[in-house]
């Protein structure tokens, strides 16, 4: 069976006003894969995810999602298409309860009818969210908030989930736990793009990896084929 491309980014440029943040970035994500994008601070990883989800409009190049051009779509359209972003810094709705946060995740008309089932699935995946369902989201710990942000993104029943720095500021035990759950969802067929600064962990999880530096892709390949030395050089631009 031919492998299906979930996401194809081709020759993508993006700007913040006059500052060019992405330079001819190309990237392929096959359906069912975990793809890692690693790079230092300011290398353009988050910009790339924001551009895919529509928060930023590309100035050149194309983004195809299952063969359909989505480069010009605004976020509420890309979510409806099936792309969910877990944003950097979690950004849970602090003045909403945990369950209200999750229900907001099923806002797009496509996923509303399955709200209760999705909610049950998320509660199974992250039991702590069930235990705290009526608490305000700002009373959760950092790790719990991250689980909430992931759960919320899953509520829209996406085909592709983009995770931006989900391990940032969390204890290693909790990171390990969150990654375990992510791999579990991936095993059920969800395609995942991970953006991380934590090289080792994200390489371990990925089928394919991209290293970014100063807005460009400087290295790519299967994690097993990349030597630590190569990755370090690409990461730091040595």
């Amino acid at each position: 069976m031919a492998e299906v491309l979930a996401l194809r980014v081709f020759d993508l440029d993006a700007h913040y006003k006059d500052f060019q943040a992405l330079w001819a970035v190309s990237l392929d994500v096959k359906k069912g894969e975990v793809v890692s994008i690693i790079g230092a601070n300011g290398s353009g990883k988050s910009t790339l995810l924001n551009t895919i989800s529509g928060l930023l409009t590309p100035t050149r190049g194309t983004i195809e999602f299952f063969g359909q051009e989505i480069g010009d779509l605004v976020p509420h359209k890309t979510v409806a298409e099936g792309i969910s972003l877990v944003p950097e810094g979690r950004r849970v709705f602090t003045r909403l309860t945990v369950n209200e946060n999750l229900v907001m995740g099923s806002y797009v008309p496509r996923s509303r009818p399955n709200k209760n089932k999705s909610l049950k699935d998320i509660h199974e995946l992250f039991p702590v969210l069930k235990a705290r369902q009526n608490q305000m989201a700002d009373t959760l710990s950092g790790g719990e908030q991250q689980m909430l942000a992931i759960g919320r993104a899953l509520m829209s029943e996406p085909k592709l989930i983009l995770c931006d720095e989900i391990s940032l500021g969390l204890a290693p035990m909790i990171i390990k736990d969150i990654y375990k759950r992510l791999m579990q969802i991936n095993a059920e067929g969800l395609t995942i793009v991970l953006v991380e600064q934590d090289i080792r962990r994200s390489l371990k999880a990925a089928n394919h990896a991209y290293v970014m530096l100063e807005g460009k892709v400087v290295l790519e390949g299967e994690p097993s084929s990349l030597t630590e030395d190569e990755v370090k050089k690409a990461y730091f631009g040595l």
Partner: peptide
């Protein structure tokens, strides 16, 4: 921003 990411216009 988070609301937009949930699909809210």
């Amino acid at each position: 921003v988070a609301a937009r990411l949930m699909g809210v216009n």
